[in-house]
Structures are given as structure tokens and as C-alpha cells.
Nucleic acid binder design. Structure first.
Lengths: 131, 131
DNA sequence: GTGCATTAGATGCCATTGCATGATTTCTTG
DNA sequence: CAAGAAATCATGCAATGGCATCTAATGCAC
């Protein structure tokens, strides 16, 4: 692939990621007391609509296993999820979203959508995917 | 813009950023002892081919002013750049790349290019930009 | 069943980052 | 010129992340 195109694509990814992450951190944090990672985890659980093993979550979020472990720990401390033992494999841990977790996620979702909308609307973003 | 398209674009940005950053960190780190931020700063200076004010750099890299200050401090400790006083504005600091800095950058550049090439070749990436 | 490799998840440690703030210098206003 | 506002860069601090490692549980080979 042409080197110049790669460089341009990389600059686009870097810029978009930086802008979006920064905005998400600010908006989700100020408005809902959630970090992007916390929201992401809640979002994945809501999306699947069932309790998930930590390892399953690990495949879906772009975090190391250790970072995910800590995010879940923070969420549990905030009572937004609970960690339940897995009866079939006692090493495993199920992460269950609590009612309060659902509420917080539902409240934060429009904020996240709005931020991303804003970012990607501003710059045509991904012309190839955008139709 | 369609909500689904935005979500897809955001997933693309997240995934590409994570994969590329991780690979860059590994390859640049192992092969050349540079982090992505360090390389980025060297690259910007080489690109402009002159000494830059810290603030100018700040506009070009996606780092906070404080993070940039520390990256430059690390680069200085590694003797890859020098911090020179700015005579016209004694608050300012010029960042000059050293000969060794140029050498290291030149050595690392192909690695960076190869990593990005690999990432963006693997998945067609940005069809809209990719031709 | 015993022992060894493997897997799941938690944790110690360290590096990097952003925010708030500090110190110094420059600019602006009167 | 004096005083306060603004700009530039450095630094204290806390949060987050990854790597290596630890513990516990499972699976595999014999």
C-alpha cells in the first residue's frame, strides 16, 4: 500500500482517537462519573444482555487482562456490577450488571453517542464506510 | 450521520489504534529503545528540519503540554535532543535534535513504517482514503 | 490418583499521562 | 514605570495501564 496513504490513515486514527477519548473522558466523567473504560465494560455487558466471564470481556475491550480486572473492581466498588462465582469452573468469575449499573449505563449512553456523533460528523471520517 | 455508521467507525478507530500502538510500542521499544511518543517527537523535528519550540511540538503531537515536557526530558537524558534557550523569549525552549537523535530516528523509521504498513494492509483500513 | 503443565483471575511494581499548580518572563493597561 | 494579566515551561500528584508474577483451580499424562 502506498506509504503516503498509510501515513495519512495513521494520522487520522491518531487524531480521531485522541479527540474522541479526550471528549469522552470529559463528558462521561463530568456528567456520569464514568471513565471510558468503565462505560465500555458496562456497554458490552448490556449489549450481550447476560453475565459474562472476565475473559469474554477481555476479548471485546482493548485492555489487558490486568487492566480489565481493575476496571471491574472499580465498577464493583461503585456497585454497578457484581462479581459472581462460576459454578462450573471455580477459577472463573462472572461479571453481572446491577440495576444501578443499567441505570447509569442508560443515562450515559446518549452522552457517548452525542460525543461520537459530534466527532465523526465534524470530519467526514470514514468515507469508505460512511454509506 | 447514521448512528450505526458512527459506532462502526468508532470501533474501527479503537481497534486500529490499539493494535498499532501496541505493535509500535513493542517494535520501537525492543528494536530501538524508543517509545511511540519519543519517536513521534523525533519524527516531527526531523520533518520540520529545524529546532522547534516546545509549544510548536505541542500542536503536532497528541500529548498534553506536561506530557510533552517529560518526553523531551527523557529524550534529552538519552542525548537524542538538546534543550536550548530561546534568546528572543526567555520563557521559551527550543528542542534541537542531536546527530545521535537523527541516527536513531533514521534507524527507527523503517520499523515504524513497516508496522503501520502491516496494520493497514491487513485490513483495508480507510477505503475512502485508500486510493 | 499423583504430578506437571495450563488457565483464570488478582496484585505488586513501574512507566506514562493529564490536571492543577508553580516559577519565570513577557505583555498590557493606565 | 508599576501592577496585574497572560504565556511558557516544569513539577507534584493521582489515575490508569501493561508486564511479570502469584494463587487457585483445572486438565492431562502416566
Amino acid at each position: 500500500m502506498d506509504e503516503h496513504v498509510v501515513a495519512e490513515a495513521w494520522r487520522y486514527v491518531l487524531a480521531t482517537h485522541a479527540k474522541a477519548m479526550c471528549a469522552l473522558e470529559r463528558e462521561l466523567g463530568d456528567r456520569h462519573g464514568l471513565g471510558p473504560s468503565e462505560f465500555e465494560v458496562l456497554d458490552r455487558i448490556v449489549h450481550h444482555d447476560r453475565k459474562l466471564r472476565l475473559q469474554e470481556l477481555c476479548d471485546e475491550v482493548h485492555l489487558s487482562q490486568s487492566a480489565l480486572s481493575r476496571v471491574v473492581a472499580r465498577l464493583e466498588k461503585a456497585a454497578l456490577v457484581s462479581r459472581d462465582a462460576c459454578s462450573s469452573d471455580r477459577r472463573g468469575v462472572f461479571v453481572c450488571i446491577t440495576p444501578e449499573g443499567r441505570t447509569r449505563h442508560a443515562a450515559a449512553l446518549p452522552t457517548q453517542r452525542a460525543v461520537l456523533q459530534e466527532i465523526f460528523a465534524g470530519a467526514p471520517a470514514l468515507p469508505g464506510l460512511a454509506r
